[in-house]
């Protein structure tokens, strides 16, 4: 049972990471604003399920929380740089 809370936290962190990374990507893309937004939304919605299920697929519960956390921090950093 104690195996699951870090994995659930991992799912939420991955969602935040998706928001950060795709926000940064949208700012970086050299497409018109509307098209870049649409592309990012389509990609984010298509990738959301396969990416966010990962914490429950991976073996290590530590990795299940730490990898998403790292993705959130790096995504936040890239987003800050892209603003």
């Amino acid at each position: 049972m104690r195996d699951y809370p870090p994995r659930l936290v991992g799912i939420i962190l991955l969602w935040i990471a998706l928001v950060f990374w795709f926000s940064a990507l949208r700012n970086v893309l050299s497409l018109p604003d509307e098209q870049a937004g649409q592309l990012c939304l389509l990609a984010a919605s298509a990738l959301s399920a396969p990416v966010m299920i990962w914490p429950f697929v991976t073996q290590s519960r530590r990795l299940a929380a730490l990898v998403p956390l790292a993705l959130v921090f790096t995504g936040g950093f890239v987003l800050m740089c892209s603003l």
Binding site: V19, F22, S23, L41, S45
Partner: peptide, 21 residues
């Protein structure tokens, strides 16, 4: 489910900074 997510995606993924149309 995927098309529903595409329709609601502005709420599901509130991109930063939110640029209003």
């Amino acid at each position: 489910t995927w098309t529903g997510l595409v329709l609601m995606t502005g709420n599901a993924f509130p991109f930063i900074p939110v640029r209003l149309p």
